[in-house]
């Protein structure tokens, strides 16, 4: 009888403890990464490589997701608004929705899919083939050489990607609205610009920076802590993407709360 009660409790306790330990390890890992970002030596080549990989090469996928999301949003708001004859709010709501929420979140999730997975798989493979050990024996700190450039690249490029995504998302809404919903192109843009406030844009970019750090950090963390063999690489990649996606959505909620709850 008592085992019936204690066993689930013990299981719950063990799970909570394991989760807390992971949170602790990830936090230490993050602090370590930032310490390496701000202390020399700096690996310029690695940083440049990460900039191209994280930022530049992500532009197509960011553009595509943003334009379709913005377009769909315009259609929904028009359909929803017309129920109480408020169709004319399309430009304002599209701008608000894209800039405050959908832009950063879509970019963040695309980063988890594209960047986190590839970082985790690359670093895990390096770990499994002893390349990380080799780095250490060559007097190079893997945190400095592999993690710091990637996380820093995430911090600086993802806000730019979010800005691009926001712009293209708004354009997607504009395109659908002017082409099939009968809005005047110039008035639509005027309404958008008039409606957006500086905090909307700032929150968007801050979210981008946070999500960029989360996406790159999770890839590095799970790659560095990969198990052995091909199975270890697979598991590290999967866990990194799941962790990045969940953390990005959670961080989004927290940041929205911080910026907009009055």
């Amino acid at each position: 009888m008592s085992a019936l009660i204690t066993r689930p409790l013990a299981l719950l306790g063990a799970t909570v403890l394991a989760a807390l330990a992971t949170v602790g390890r990830v936090t230490r890992f993050a602090l370590d990464a930032f310490r390496h970002i701000i202390t020399p030596p700096f690996y310029g080549r690695e940083f440049w490589h990460a900039l191209v990989h994280v930022g530049y090469l992500s532009l197509p996928v960011v553009g595509l997701t943003a334009i379709f999301t913005g377009g769909a949003l315009a259609l929904q708001i028009y359909a929803g608004g017309s129920r109480f004859s408020a169709e004319q709010v399309v430009p304002q709501i599209v701008a608000l929705g894209v800039v405050r929420e959908l832009g950063p979140v879509m970019v963040g999730l695309m980063m988890a899919a594209r960047v986190t997975s590839s970082i985790a798989a690359e670093i895990a493979t390096m770990k499994v083939t002893e390349q990380i050990d080799a780095l250490v024996t060559l007097s190079t700190d893997p945190m400095k050489y592999l993690t710091a450039p990637r996380v820093f690249a995430g911090l600086v490029t993802v806000p730019v990607l979010v800005a691009v995504g926001d712009t293209i998302g708004v354009f997607g809404g504009w395109f659908v609205s002017t082409q099939s919903l009968g809005f005047n192109p110039a008035t639509y843009l005027q309404n958008t610009v008039d409606f957006l406030e500086p905090p909307d844009v700032i929150s968007s970019l801050v979210k981008g920076a946070a999500f960029g750090v989360i996406a790159t950090l999770m890839g590095c963390y799970f790659g560095m802590h990969s198990g052995r063999g091909a199975q270890g690489v697979g598991r590290a990649t999967k866990s990194s993407v799941v962790a990045a996606a969940v953390l990005i959505l959670a961080a989004n909620f927290v940041l929205t709360q911080a910026f907009f709850s009055t």
Partner: peptide, 19 residues
């Protein structure tokens, strides 16, 4: 550690080259 390891050279069993 860097100075310590600078005295060593190591050939890994699987070569461990940076690909």
């Amino acid at each position: 550690r860097d100075a310590f390891l600078a005295r060593f050279g190591m050939l890994f069993q699987g070569a461990a080259l940076f690909d």
